[in-house]
Design a protein around this nucleic acid. Structure first.
Length: 479
DNA sequence: TGAAATGTTGGGGCG
DNA sequence: ACGCCCCAACATTTC
């Protein structure tokens, strides 16, 4: 085996030490390891505010973990290729390792970086830390990428037993004789200047330790995942999405942990259902990799010339959680306060924006991008195009959520509404999901004055549904 | 990972 | 005892 003197491990969104193939590969040759993070703000979907907040803390956590191994995290800022070239010359590195990203801009950049490194006579090795299945390893009988989830996942599941076991964290990391200079994480200015982030801090612990704590706590109730996953008032879901996005934990680790914890029959069913959600994440990456334009344009061409509403007021009301439709407003406020929203509610607010309000899915995608701590280009694109009906395996145009029915079905105790919309808390169960329909006396008793303490609904649900259906009729023919 | 309209069934009240 | 109607409950179809 070739012996490498100094190896640069280029951290990106794989901010963990366990099950990190790039790190494992670097450490394999008894090399001196230089862990590096390069802050390289691309122009394509630059990181949103909530993501930046998370990244700041995650980098801090990673730096701390590396210090316990007598190592460091070298932080630099600038174009990745330039910075890596400098670092190679400063350290005399003969190998650079990293874990792959799959967004179009990152793929393109990494190809250029790799070519430049090799041209400089240095070895470059990229690994898979983020996905169970590489996007190019799943294809249909015609050797084409899938566009429908179910056959995609059937094919993928057939390969799942062949997955490598998660790697352990290194117990020590040898450093270089001389460490290259590093700037501070603070100097990246990732944290907000106006401190709106207290709600995020109360809810999340970014970093690898936080990820494992979250997985651990999910493990206690994962056997009831199937029954509780659609309840936004309960902690029925894993809450692992931001940790997964930043690679503080990998899907192989989650799978391995749950498989060992959920042997019972009911647990096994819940595991399959949860695993399917990881499958949607895989599918999202598969789609964005093979159809890179979909981050900005609909996969379904029939939607290219769709006439969306441009109402700034409607968009603003939606963003602020002031649409007058309680379940929608509750979701949008949960998002603003915690940087996260339950997936069931994401579908409801997205359907409301794109179908009832007829506002472009990209407007919703951009808002989510800025406010979600788990903002992920692949997942966000798939989610929004699915809801708008213009993506792969999309909801048919006529699938329009009724926010009142959804709320009654999935928030039966009204706990989610009362938590996020305190001004409606005194309304009886019968009316709290649709205050506009409540008798005047009931509203008065509950201290609610529509148009004053809580908005009138900004659209008529029934009429806007009809309008949307009529508009969709025009393109109801398959392409 | 819909909702609403329409169709069908079957029990019970009632003449 | 019987047929008729009503209507909830469930199933199917349509958007």
């Amino acid at each position: 085996m070739q012996s490498h003197h100094v190896v640069i491990v280029w951290f990106r969104r794989d901010l963990r030490l366990t099950d990190n193939p790039a790190l494992e590969r670097a450490a394999a040759g008894a090399a001196r390891i230089v862990p590096v993070y390069i802050h390289d703000e691309g122009a394509d979907w630059p990181m949103g505010a909530a993501s930046r907040w998370w990244l700041h803390r995650s980098l801090t956590a990673l730096e701390g973990s590396l210090r316990t191994l007598s190592s460091r995290l070298i932080v630099r800022q600038g174009p990745s290729a330039t910075v890596l070239d400098q670092l190679i010359r400063e350290t005399g590195a003969t190998l650079v390792t990293w874990n792959r990203l799959y967004e179009p801009a990152a793929v393109e950049r990494d190809q250029r970086v790799k070519a430049a490194i090799i041209k400089a006579g240095v070895e470059a090795v990229s690994c898979n830390a983020a996905l169970l299945f590489e996007p190019w390893n799943i294809s249909n009988a015609q050797q084409r990428p899938y566009r429908v989830f179910t056959p995609f996942w059937r094919t993928a599941l057939a390969q799942i037993d062949a997955l490598p076991a998660p790697a352990r964290a290194p117990t020590s990391l040898a450093g270089p004789a001389r460490w290259p200079a590093s700037i501070s994480i603070d100097s990246l200015r990732l944290e907000p200047e106006v401190r709106w982030d207290s709600g995020l801090a109360a809810r999340w612990q970014p970093g690898e330790a936080g990820a494992h704590r979250m997985l651990e706590s999910f493990g206690h109730t994962a056997d009831r995942y199937m029954q509780r996953r659609d309840r936004p008032d309960q902690r029925g879901t894993s809450s692992l999405s931001p940790h997964l996005h930043f690679g503080e934990i990998g899907p192989r680790q989650i799978l391995a942990a749950l498989q060992s914890q959920l042997p019972a029959a009911q647990g096994a069913r819940s595991l399959a259902v949860y695993l399917k959600e990881l499958g949607w994440r895989e599918f999202a990456h598969h789609l964005l990799f093979h159809f890179p334009h979909t981050r900005n344009a609909p996969l379904d061409q029939r939607f290219l010339h769709w006439r969306w509403s441009r109402s700034r007021n409607d968009l603003k009301a939606w963003q602020r959680g002031l649409t007058g439709v309680p379940i929608v407003d509750a979701g949008m406020r949960e998002l603003w306060h915690t940087g996260w929203m339950h997936n069931r509610v994401r579908m409801i607010v997205a359907s409301f924006l794109t179908k009832n309000l007829q506002i472009h899915w990209l407007a919703g995608a951009r808002w989510f991008w800025d406010t979600l701590v788990d903002a992920d280009l692949a997942n966000n694109t798939l989610g929004w195009q699915w809801t708008a009906g213009c993506g792969a395996d999309a909801a048919p145009y006529y699938r329009i959520f009724n926010p009142v029915l959804q709320a009654e079905k999935f928030d039966p105790d009204r706990a989610y509404i009362r938590r996020w919309i305190p001004e409606l808390a005194q309304l009886p169960d019968r009316w709290i999901h649709q205050p506009w329909a409540a008798p005047g006396a009931v509203l008065t008793t509950a201290g609610v004055t529509l148009g004053s303490t809580y908005p009138h609904p900004i659209v008529d649900l029934k009429r806007s549904r009809g309008t949307a259906l009529a508009a969709y009729q025009h393109i109801s023919q398959p392409q």
